[in-house]
């Protein structure tokens, strides 16, 4: 624990001087990446996600490995069971990306080193979104490909359009995590932000169903039943959704989450930019 009382800063002519230029987003991205890969919560959440999606997906593939059983849905549909649970892991990772800094006080160190808060926040969004999307779609791809190899049925199919739809589903789940990050940045508490997000993901089907009990609220209830996270995910992965007819297209679902997450992200920039840390 003994520190030499000298600073090896001044003398070296051989050392290149530290950069004086204004730091840019690339620097913040590198920092965020280091932060993301250096804590265990990343490993736990993403590990849980992969285990759920791939594990349950392969089980599902095994169960449906019957020439007559696996008819309608595309191969990637096997991943959806894991994803419906795994989306929580993505949300938790998104929330923790920012709230862990507030919980520990690290945010003050970060914003002292990088006073441009928008730069830091942007890096968080980009790194998280890239990591989450990569891991989610890789897990889905593993399940889809495994299914293509294992399921030997003339009816089994996976068109390019269905791959794209599955990719849209991965994007949807990533955006749920982005929404979690935005809410985390605003409320600054891990538990609070996770609770809000769980409510947003799990309550709409229930609330929508309850609203249909009143005649005057039935249209609203039906709307909520059609536009919510579980339904959107199942739909994008080509599972038949037995709910109300006339379901909106994948793009409408995606547009909705883009709008909601976008609004939350915009709000987070406004709040974090002005608020005392």
């Amino acid at each position: 624990m003994t520190g030499p009382a000298t600073l090896p800063d001044q003398p070296p002519e051989q050392d290149p001087p530290l950069p004086e230029t204004r730091p840019h987003l690339g620097h913040a991205l590198a920092s965020e990446w280091t932060k993301m890969v250096s804590v265990r919560s990343t490993l736990w959440t993403l590990g849980a996600l992969v285990l759920l999606v791939v594990g349950i997906g392969l089980l599902a593939v095994g169960e449906t490995n019957d020439p007559t059983g696996f008819t309608n849905p595309p191969h990637t549909a096997a991943a959806v069971f894991g994803l419906l649970v795994g989306q929580v892991a993505v949300i938790v990772l998104g929330v923790l990306t920012v709230t862990s800094e507030y919980a520990t006080g690290l945010i003050r160190t970060t914003l002292t080193a990088a006073p441009d808060r928008a730069r830091v926040l942007t890096a968080k969004y980009l790194v998280f979104a890239a990591v989450a999307f990569t891991v989610v779609s890789a897990s889905v791809a593993v399940v889809g490909i495994a299914s293509m190899i294992a399921v030997d049925s003339p009816q089994a199919h996976q068109t390019a359009g269905e791959w794209l739809a599955a990719l849209t589903g991965c994007l949807y789940i990533t955006l749920l995590g982005v929404l979690g990050l935005a809410i985390g940045a605003v409320v600054r508490h891990s538990a609070g932000a996770i609770a809000v997000m769980l409510g947003l993901v799990t309550l709409p089907p229930v609330v929508g169903g309850m609203l249909t009990m009143w005649d005057s609220l039935t249209p609203l209830g039906n709307l909520i039943i059609r536009y919510n996270a579980p339904v959107a995910i199942m739909q994008m992965f080509g599972l038949p959704t037995s709910e109300v007819g006339g379901l909106p297209g994948n793009w409408a679902q995606l547009a909705l989450i883009v709008a909601v997450a976008g609004a939350a992200v915009a709000g987070s920039y406004a709040v974090v930019g002005r608020r005392d840390v």
Binding site: P23, H27, A30, S31, E32, T34, S38, T110, A113
Partner: peptide
């Protein structure tokens, strides 16, 4: 790693 993540913010 903590120090590195802070250093990277300014390209140190």
């Amino acid at each position: 790693t903590h120090l590195l993540s802070i250093a990277q913010l300014s390209g140190i």
